[in-house]
């Protein structure tokens, strides 16, 4: 399972994005983080070739949220055979936008002195959940009413034995904010909001019944195509 950061935002363990056999000996593992509003791509480069690697550079294809490197890929010294280096690449969201399928798909090109290599990875959507995503209560109620029912999507989060307060605080660590909490007929109803870096708001209702490990998540958004990935992010944060 993943590890938390100081701010509480969920960080998945690094996985292999580019196996050495597909990149003439260069292996790339990585994960994504968001801490205090700064998004990073945390990379591990390993040289499994017989020759030294130099002249690294990285580039992203256009993507749904305009994610782009905010600095060049800095590998300070040549990478010798069997050597591994850890790099934290800062990202911003001012790059070119193109809607990807799935929405969180990122296509990456990495070059070194040997060749150019390409890979795709999926980023957890919460890296684009902003810190000021708590919607004012009156606006929440008006927006909830205003978004048509066709735009509501419902999901089950199974096997999540957390109570409402634990759920609330864990989600807040990843910029999903509880706006109101009510108890109706024994079940807790959390009303939550989050905002994406492109200004899209997502409103949520999370139902928690005592003794039932399955939660019901209802999402309302004017851009309902984000709902599936938002649901997956809830699952990832709550189950890890």
């Amino acid at each position: 399972s993943g590890v938390g950061t100081l701010s509480g935002s969920y960080v998945a363990p690094k996985t292999v994005w580019l196996p050495a056999m597909k990149a003439k000996g260069l292996e790339i593992s990585g994960t994504f983080t968001r801490q205090g509003g700064t998004i990073s791509m945390d990379l591990q480069l390993t040289n499994k070739a017989l020759q030294v690697m130099t002249d690294f550079a990285i580039q992203f294809n256009r993507n749904s949220f305009g994610l782009a490197p905010a600095a060049p890929l800095q590998v300070h010294a040549p990478l010798s055979p069997n050597q591994t280096v850890e790099i934290s690449l800062p990202l911003n969201t001012v790059g070119s936008v193109m809607k990807m399928e799935p929405l969180n798909n990122l296509q990456v090109a990495v070059k070194n002195n040997i060749d150019v290599f390409y890979f795709s990875t999926l980023y957890p959507l919460h890296i684009v959940f902003v810190e000021d995503g708590k919607m004012e209560r009156q606006l929440f109620l008006a927006t909830w009413k205003d978004i048509p029912n066709e735009n509501e999507a419902q999901f089950q989060i199974r096997d999540c034995p957390l109570n409402a307060d634990a759920v609330s605080s864990r989600l807040q660590g990843s910029n999903i904010f509880t706006v109101a909490k009510r108890n109706v007929e024994g079940q807790d109803m959390l009303y939550q909001s989050l905002k994406l870096t492109n200004g899209i708001w997502v409103l949520a209702e999370l139902r928690i019944q005592p003794g039932n490990p399955n939660l019901t998540l209802s999402l309302k958004c004017r851009a309902p195509e984000v709902s599936q990935q938002v649901f997956q992010t809830y699952e990832t944060i709550l189950k890890n």
Binding site: Q138, L141, V184, M189, Y191, E205
Partner: peptide, 20 residues
């Protein structure tokens, strides 16, 4: 919290969602 009517509005929302 100030009693601005919003507490009541959230209760009504939660109620309506439980018993539509």
């Amino acid at each position: 919290e100030l009693d601005d009517g919003l507490d009541e509005a959230f209760s009504r929302l939660a109620q309506s969602r439980t018993n539509p």
